[in-house]
């Protein structure tokens, strides 16, 4: 009986472990194997080459620029998301007329799959038939046509903007949750102590919200770093590789150019980056909070 007691928790997590291990562990093992091999387009392993795939990838200037751009992309999208989501959540936390409508509207971008959202925005930003140009013209903000996707200088910021917009709902939801967990009476206490609203925000709300912002940052970094459809649908990493991030570079490598080996190497590098970021960030936050 006692043995059963002790085994019970393990038995309860066993199915989740098994399924996750099978569906994620096996492909991961495959990826490691491929990253060390000379593989044909069609997955035939011609031999093992050690770290040659990694060396080849790191020698590719496109990889290096994609790596830098991935950092830019992740920082810009996650940063932008937090900057937009925090005030939005604060407003949505207020009691005002039509709040549930406002909350539903803010949530809407979450209801469109990323690929479809990217398609819609690509169409909206179309140089000739897109409503973005048409609207800007009718507002008198410009006269001609802007070919948004023609250059990285305009395309990449647009992609970042779309990235922020689709990440906002999830983050707002987390932050709203955080706000609703802050007990109302501390504000009353604060106002009795004569704190201004701004001070209450600065010294009460923000610190309490911090752990939720952190959660939003970690999860968004993971999702945004791996986010494929927006850039692939809108510019496919072009023109001249100028909008590639690692995940689009990897896809092109694996399926356009038919090199699964180096592609597997890129995926492992990506995994290592996200993993170390998450671990370091979580540690740092834990230390800061305990200090």
């Amino acid at each position: 009986m006692r043995a059963v007691r002790r085994a019970a928790p393990l038995l309860l997590i066993l199915p989740s472990l098994l399924l996750a291990l099978a569906v994620i562990g096996y492909p991961l093992y495959e990826m490691i194997r491929l990253s060390l091999a000379d593989v044909s387009r069609f997955g035939q392993i011609r031999g093992y080459v050690g770290l040659a795939n990694f060396a080849r990838v790191f020698a590719d200037p496109v990889f290096l620029s994609a790596l830098l751009r991935t950092l830019e992309w992740t920082i810009a999208v996650v940063g932008g998301t937090v900057l937009v989501a925090t005030p939005t959540a604060l407003i949505l936390h207020q009691n005002f007329w039509g709040r549930s409508l406002a909350r539903t509207l803010v949530m809407l971008p979450w209801a469109i799959s990323l690929s479809m959202a990217a398609i819609v925005w690509l169409w909206a930003f179309d140089g000739d038939h897109g409503m973005v140009n048409a609207s800007l013209r009718s507002l008198g903000l410009m006269s001609g046509n802007v070919q948004w996707m023609a250059r990285a200088e305009t395309a990449f910021p647009v992609e970042i903007g779309v990235g922020i917009l689709v990440s906002v709902p999830f983050s707002v939801t987390i932050l709203l949750g955080g706000l609703s967990s802050i007990p109302g009476d501390i504000y009353e206490a604060a106002s009795i102590d004569g704190a201004s609203r701004l001070q209450a925000f600065r010294f009460l709300t923000l610190p309490l919200l911090r752990s939720f912002i952190n959660i939003a940052i970690v999860l968004n970094v993971i999702y945004v770093f791996n986010s494929f459809p927006i850039i692939w649908v809108m510019t496919q990493g072009g023109p001249d590789n100028s909008t590639h991030i690692l995940v689009t570079y990897l896809y092109e490598l694996a399926f356009r150019l038919g090199r699964p080996g180096p592609a597997a190497a890129v995926s492992l590098v990506m995994l290592a980056i996200v993993f170390s970021f998450t671990m370091i960030y979580v540690r740092l936050q834990a230390r800061e909070q305990s200090a």
Binding site: I24, P27, M31, G43, L250, F275
Partner: peptide
Amino acid sequence: FLLVTQMLSPVLLVLGLFRM
């Protein structure tokens, strides 16, 4: 372990998933 499984986007794993 759960957090790590969140870090893998299916795009990275497609080939392996398919072979599995």
